[in-house]
Every structure is written in C-alpha cells, then in structure tokens.
C-alpha cells in the first residue's frame, strides 16, 4: 500500500523476467507437442543465439595463422591453438587503448548528466504544477523517436562554431540531448506512480520542493534511476554513429577505431575480434550484473 508503485509496465516486466514460471494456459496449447520436444527445440534456439558470440570469443583467442587456416570450431579438436597473443597485441596498441579510455570518458559523463538533468525535469513534470505541463510532456513523448540524423548536420555546424567539434565534450553533449527525451519519459512515468499522499505527507512534514525531490522522490525512484543509468550507459557505450560524426582521431571511442580497421576484414580478424570483444566485455558485464534493471529499462523505453 505504501510502497511506491512503479509504472505498470515496469512492474509486469519484473514478473515476466524474474518471476517463477507458471503453468501458463497458453503453454498447454503446445503441451501436446510434448514437454521434451519443446525443451529440446528451445535449447537449440538458445544455442543458436550463443554460438555467434562464442565464435567471436574463440576467434579472438586464436592467432592470425590459425584463424586463416580454419574455423573457430577447430579448437574443439585442437585446443592448443588458444593463445593470448591477440590481446597482447591489443595491449600494445596505443590507438586502441586510447580509444577504450575515450569510450569511458564519453560514457560516464553522458550517463551522469542524463540521469541528473532528466530527474530534475521529470520531477517538475510529475509533481510541480505549472501551466502547459501537459503540452511540455507531449513534446517529450514526441521526441522519443526522433532520429539522430536530423541533428547531425546542424549540430556539426554548431559544434564547429563553438570549437566543440571533434571533442569528447561535443560527443557527450549530443548523447545527452538525444538521451534526455527517453530518460525524462521513463522517470516521469515512475515518479507519477509514486502515491500522491507521500508527496503531500512530505509537504506537510515541512519539506520544500527541493527536499521533496531529494529526500522522497529520488530515494523512492532508485530502481527506475538504476534502470535508466544502465540503459543509458550501454546506449552510449555501444554508439558508433554519433562518434563517427563528432569525434576526431584523438577523441574517437573504440567502436570508431575498430570500424577504421574494417576495410581489411579478412586480414586483421585477430585485431577486430579481440577488439570487438574488448568493447563487449564491459556492456556484457553490466548486463549480466544488472540484467533485471536493464531489461526493465529497455522495455520501459521501448520507443527509443
């Protein structure tokens, strides 16, 4: 009763992702196929989903000669091919290391800024009354699906004039701008789900608006903020397009640098596979550690 109610959508997701499996009625339809058949089929599907990533992982642990001589699956018969050579090469490659650092330098500030700015805005949209509130919220909803392409040329020009083009700051600003509509939308949905009584109780307890935000709404909104932060982190970390346009050689994140190697795909699979895997390690780790929050974030912000 007193617990803050998350937006409906987020709540059902929780049930779906981490709830205990139930004997669904729908599933009885397929029950005739036999439980075993279904399980085997699903296991095969799961295998299909894992194999491509596994292939890349294995390839990244084989040297160039082995990779050219045969597929990654030969390690099952000749495990001796596995080597750290590619990663050693990566560790010695300053461009790649620098780009990895750039990825961090772009991702972390973007995430923090998006969370802070959107939390403020979402609070205003949910709990402060002002004329035109519905209208502002509608604009935010409209911006949810805005393709970044419409802003690439003008913002490139703007950044050029401001000396931000090719800088990490520029890339971060662009990410923040296009991360905000979704972030505001997600947090607004969650914040409005907080019972009105709670906010009013705080108001009666003597809290000013700022304190209600900081001491009541933010702590209660923690799960939503976590979802948002993780989603935004992965979104920015995984970006290629924005950085491709706005970053220069010194500020390029890892995706951009690896993309530069793409032309010689066949010959530098060692660098590409290990580099790609390096770029995946952080998101995969974040995903596995916080999968529930991430799934909620993605579903809540499905429209992005």
């Amino acid at each position: 009763m007193t617990a803050a109610t998350a937006p409906e959508r987020v709540r059902i997701v929780e049930v779906a992702v981490s709830g205990s499996p139930r004997r669904g009625l729908l599933s009885r339809l397929v029950g005739r196929l036999g439980d075993g058949t279904v399980q085997v089929a699903l296991a095969v599907v799961a295998l299909f989903w894992l194999m491509p990533v596994f292939g890349l992982l294995v390839s990244s642990f084989r040297d160039e000669t082995d990779n050219n001589a045969g597929g990654w699956w030969t390690v099952f018969t000749k495990p001796a091919q596995l080597t750290l050579e590619n990663y050693e090469g990566l560790a010695a490659n300053e461009t790649v290391l620098r780009s990895f650092l750039n990825t961090v330098l772009i991702t972390v500030p973007s995430t923090v800024l998006v969370v802070v700015i959107s939390a403020l805005a979402a609070y205003a949209l949910s709990w402060i009354e002002f004329p035109g509130r519905g209208w502002v919220t509608t604009v935010v909803v409209g911006l949810l699906v805005m393709p970044v392409q419409v802003a690439l040329i003008p913002v490139a020009k703007l950044f050029g004039a401001l000396g931000l083009f090719g800088t990490i700051t520029g890339v971060v600003l662009f990410h923040v701008a296009f991360g905000l509509p979704f972030a505001i939308f997600l947090l607004r949905n969650f914040f409005t789900g907080i019972p009105r009584d709670l906010v009013e109780a705080a108001r009666m307890d003597g809290a000013r608006e700022w304190l209600i935000f900081a001491k009541v709404v933010l702590p209660i909104g923690k799960p939503a903020i976590a979802s948002l932060a993780i989603f935004e982190f992965l979104w920015v970390w995984n970006d290629l397009l924005v950085a491709l346009v706005f970053a220069d050689q010194d500020s390029a994140p890892i995706t951009v640098v690896l993309r530069g190697q793409l032309r010689q795909f066949g010959t530098n699979i060692d660098l590409l596979s290990s580099g790609a895997f390096l770029s995946m390690v952080v998101p995969l780790g974040v995903f596995l550690a916080f999968q529930r929050y991430f799934v909620q974030g993605v579903l809540a912000g499905s429209t992005k």
């Binding site: 970390w237 770029s279 995946m280 998101p283 991430f294």
Partner: peptide
C-alpha cells in the same frame, strides 16, 4: 536478450 547489450557494431 543478451544481444541487446552488445553494440550493433560488434
């Protein structure tokens, strides 16, 4: 769901 966490580039 895992592929959603990986970059489209990767």
């Amino acid at each position: 769901f895992m592929p959603m966490a990986i970059s489209l580039f990767a």
